Simulated scan of single mutants.
Amino acid sequence: MPPAADAGLLALLLTTLEALATLAFALSGLLAAARKRLDAVGVCVVAGLAAFGGGTLRDVLLDRRPFFWVEHASWLWGVLALCIVAMLLLRARHFAPTERAMQWPDALGLGLFSAGGTQVALAQGLPAIVAVLMGVVTAAFGGVLRDIVCNEIPSAFHDHRPYAVCAFAGGWVLVALLALGLPEGAAVLAGAATASGLRVLALLLDWRLPRWSPGPD
């Protein structure tokens, strides 16, 4: 396949990954806003922060323009439509089952954003460690901003189940596979699957990160 075709397929793959991850994280923002009983503006802002915050921070750090959601402005309409539908249909009795169900698309979004963010940074010629950290920022910091606005300690930092660690591992899988000569599209998918799979296993098996113990006073 010609190099131009390969580049086009990779760009399409990254765009698709970002769109799916954006939807997954927008839903998590909706649930957080609903639990706090925010008004319509608050719901849209929190959903937007969850969906776009990590990728925007990545683009700022990489001095990448236009921002990914400016380049794909239709995603803004999609998130707004999602917010409107949720406010019309979502009720308090739906919160618990919906929140449990949202763990799985959130795990999917984690993997997709971590792999996509890592590849975006690698495409700019950045060192592997920086690229992997950009993937973690893309995957985790939308949720961090969501929780900060909702006046909570970010769940990525305090629930002790691996989250950012999963994104970090997925990024390194992507880097390793590229170093071994695997096509970029396949490496991105493998990195995303690794991060998402580790997060799913962490939820199913209740893996816990060690807590900081200050010892006796």
Rank of each mutant, 00 (worst) to 15 (best):
A101K: 05
G29A: 11
L90Q: 03
T118K: 00
C150T: 05
V136F: 01
W172D: 05
F67A: 09
T15K: 12
F113G: 00
R100A: 15
P210E: 09
L209F: 10
F141I: 01
L23A: 15
P105F: 09
L182R: 02
M1W: 10
K36E: 14
G42T: 11
L23T: 09
F168P: 00
V120A: 11
G55D: 06
P210L: 14
C44S: 13
A92R: 15
L174F: 05
L204M: 15
A34I: 02
C150K: 06
G142A: 04
T98Q: 05
Y163A: 01
A139N: 03
A139L: 07
Q119I: 04
F25S: 04
E99N: 12
L89G: 06
T16V: 15
G42W: 05
L31G: 03
T56D: 04
A156L: 15
G171Q: 07
A33Q: 13
D106V: 09
L80R: 05
E152L: 10
T15P: 07
W172Y: 14
F168H: 00
V144G: 00
L20C: 13
V200K: 00
V175I: 13
L112D: 02
S74V: 09
A101Y: 09
T118M: 04
V200N: 04
A193E: 09
V173C: 08
L180S: 14
R91S: 07
A73N: 08
V130I: 08
P105M: 12
M134R: 03
G53A: 11
L110A: 08
D159R: 13
V46K: 03
R100I: 09
R93S: 09
V175E: 02
L49G: 02
E152I: 05
I148P: 02
T15N: 13
G135V: 01
W172H: 10
A51M: 14
E99W: 10
T98E: 02
L89D: 05
L27F: 13
I153H: 13
R58T: 01
A7N: 14
L57Y: 06
G171R: 01
A47M: 12
S196P: 01
P183S: 06
P3D: 12
A131P: 00
G170Q: 07
V165C: 06
L177M: 14
G117T: 03
A47K: 07
L204Y: 08
I148C: 04
A19S: 11
A73D: 12
D159C: 06
A96R: 12
A123P: 08
G170L: 03
